[in-house]
C-alpha cells in the first residue's frame, strides 16, 4: 500500500479529515476525495486559475498546493461562497452581467474576485484586470467579468452599514 497521510483542515467552515497520498494536490483532494468538484482543473500547472481557492485567506492555485500542506489550514472554495441567505454579491453580479458563457472558469474567477474584494473593496478596472490576470477565460473576452466584479464591489458598498 502507498503511504497515506491524515490531513485535518477547515473547508468552507467545516472541519474535515481525510487521507491522501503525498503526491496528491489540494485540487485532487477537493475533487476526488471530498467530491467538491466545483473547483476545476484547466491546466494543472498554475497557468489558468480555474482551480483557484482561498487558502488561509490567500488566493492560490489548488493544483500547486499539496493536499498534505493544508493540514491545520482553512480552505474556501466556490461551494462555500453562497451563504444560507443567498448568493454572494459576486455570484449575483456574474449572473446579472452575463459574465459567464461556458462557466468552467467561473468558480476560479469568483474565488479570485472574492480574494480581491475582501482586501480592496473599491478596485479600479485596471486593478481588477491585473489581479485577475492569473485566471484565463476563453469565452468572454473578460469584458463582462470585469464589469461584474466592479458591479459587485458597488453592491457590497451599498450593503455596507
Amino acid at each position: 500500500m502507498l503511504e497515506r497521510l491524515r490531513v485535518q483542515t477547515l473547508v468552507n467552515g467545516e472541519e474535515i479529515e481525510f487521507l491522501c497520498e503525498p503526491r496528491q494536490s489540494l485540487l485532487e483532494a477537493l475533487r476526488d476525495i471530498l467530491k467538491l468538484t466545483g473547483t476545476k482543473e484547466g491546466c494543472n500547472d498554475g497557468n489558468c486559475g480555474a482551480c483557484s481557492v482561498i487558502l488561509n485567506g490567500r488566493l492560490v492555485d489548488s493544483c500547486l498546493v499539496l493536499a498534505a500542506e493544508v493540514q491545520g489550514a482553512t480552505v474556501e472554495t466556490v461551494e462555500g461562497l453562497a451563504g444560507p441567505t443567498g448568493l454572494h454579491p459576486l455570484q449575483q453580479s456574474f449572473l446579472e452581467q452575463a459574465a459567464l458563457q461556458c462557466g468552467i472558469c467561473t468558480p476560479g474567477f469568483l474565488m479570485a474576485a472574492k480574494a480581491l474584494l475582501d482586501r480592496e473593496p473599491h478596485p479600479s478596472e485596471a486593478r481588477v484586470r491585473l489581479w485577475l490576470a492569473g485566471n484565463l477565460c476563453r469565452c468572454t473576452g473578460y469584458d463582462k467579468i470585469v464589469r461584474a466584479v466592479l458591479d459587485a464591489a458597488d453592491k457590497m458598498e451599498v450593503a455596507r452599514p
Binding site: V78, E79, L87, A98
Partner: peptide
C-alpha cells in the same frame, strides 16, 4: 430582454457537473 440564464445558479455555485466532475 436579458433574463438570468437558467443554468446560471448551478454554474456560479460550483454545482454544475462538467464532464470530469462525474463520480
Amino acid at each position: 430582454t436579458r433574463p438570468i440564464r437558467h443554468d446560471g445558479m448551478d454554474k456560479v455555485t460550483g454545482r454544475a457537473l462538467y464532464g470530469a466532475d462525474i463520480q
